[in-house]
């Protein structure tokens, strides 16, 4: 069986400019931040980012890596709106495909199931359909005379056809993983991480700790191993790799750090200082700065 252990640098080396990249987690929760930081340092650009957006989106936008974002929101949870996202949007620096959170889920699901779209009520009547003029409706082929129509109101009904959100690559962060690429989420919510991986051509996990294949059951119930190895191409161990987002039970959100990140959106000089200290450095140096900072 393949040993899928790799490094963050190798993963970033397999990505290229112009790619559509899905990033797991939700808001400021269990984001693969070590890879996001590496992307910010890389020479990649023109990326399309697909995410339940948090500081991953804010950091990549502020670093000039992003052409387009597909999302329903970009939030830091304890701060309602990522201020870096606000700046990028208000200055017209990024395109956005803004959709309902549930439409987003169905887009990933459609890609993972290899169908071109899935029907949904979500979006009907809203400006999601006007700000995304390429979105289409689909009429149910089941009319009033069909034996399959449970309620006549649904005969010939018109719904939104949420298109598959196909990803060139997906990046997620887990609490544990094994050498074969199985991923374990010990926190309360796996979010949509298995679907991001299912929707992608290149699938990567970063994790707090890698164990031998077969040993994940020692770390938590097998039902917490929600990512199986058929969904992954590579796994990199990056302790603290979700910092400063919440990654329970390993660690909570670093609220003080997040405030510093948010404040750096106020002017370009502050952002440059933040980037110099925390982004344009190797991951171990970043983690050392974080430890220093919390000891202050």
């Amino acid at each position: 069986m393949a040993d899928k252990r790799t490094t963050v640098d190798d993963i970033v080396g397999q990505l290229s400019s112009g790619m559509t990249i899905g990033i797991g987690g939700w808001g400021s929760r269990r984001k693969p931040m070590a890879i996001v930081r590496a992307l910010c340092r890389s020479d990649l650009d023109d990326l399309t980012i697909v995410a339940y957006g948090g500081p991953d989106v804010g950091l990549l936008c502020a670093s000039g890596k992003v052409r387009k974002v597909v999302c329903g929101f970009v939030t830091l949870d304890s701060i309602a709106l990522d201020p870096h996202w606000r700046v990028a949007r208000q200055h017209g620096r990024v395109e956005v495909m803004e959709v309902d959170e549930g439409m987003f889920f169905q887009g990933l699901q459609a890609a993972a199931w290899r169908v071109p779209f899935l029907p949904t009520r979500a979006g009907l009547g809203s400006d999601v359909l006007t700000i995304n003029p390429d979105l289409r409706l689909v009429r149910s082929p089941y009319g009033a005379d069909s034996p399959y129509v449970h309620d006549p109101v649904d005969a010939d009904v018109e719904l939104v056809a949420m298109p598959a959100l196909h990803l060139d690559a997906a990046l997620v962060h887990t609490n544990r993983a094994d050498t074969a690429g199985n991923g374990q989420i010990l926190g309360p919510d796996p979010f949509f991480d298995p679907l991001f991986l299912g929707a992608a051509d290149l699938r990567f996990i970063t994790t707090e700790h890698i164990v031998e294949n077969g040993k994940l059951a020692d770390e938590g119930p097998l039902s917490s191993v929600v990512i199986h190895r058929m969904l992954t191409d590579g796994v990199a161990e990056t302790p603290g790799g979700a910092h400063f987002t919440a990654n329970p039970p390993d660690y909570g959100r670093d609220e003080a750090f997040q405030k510093e990140y948010a404040a750096s959106a106020a002017d370009p000089a502050e952002w440059d200082a933040f980037a110099q200290r925390y982004l344009l450095v190797a991951e171990d140096e970043y983690q050392a700065h974080v430890r220093e900072r919390s000891a202050r």
Binding site: G53, A80, E101, G102, M103, A122, G125, V128
Partner: peptide, 8 residues
Amino acid sequence: VGVRGAPG
């Protein structure tokens, strides 16, 4: 904040 789940 974004449309979030409001349309659906």
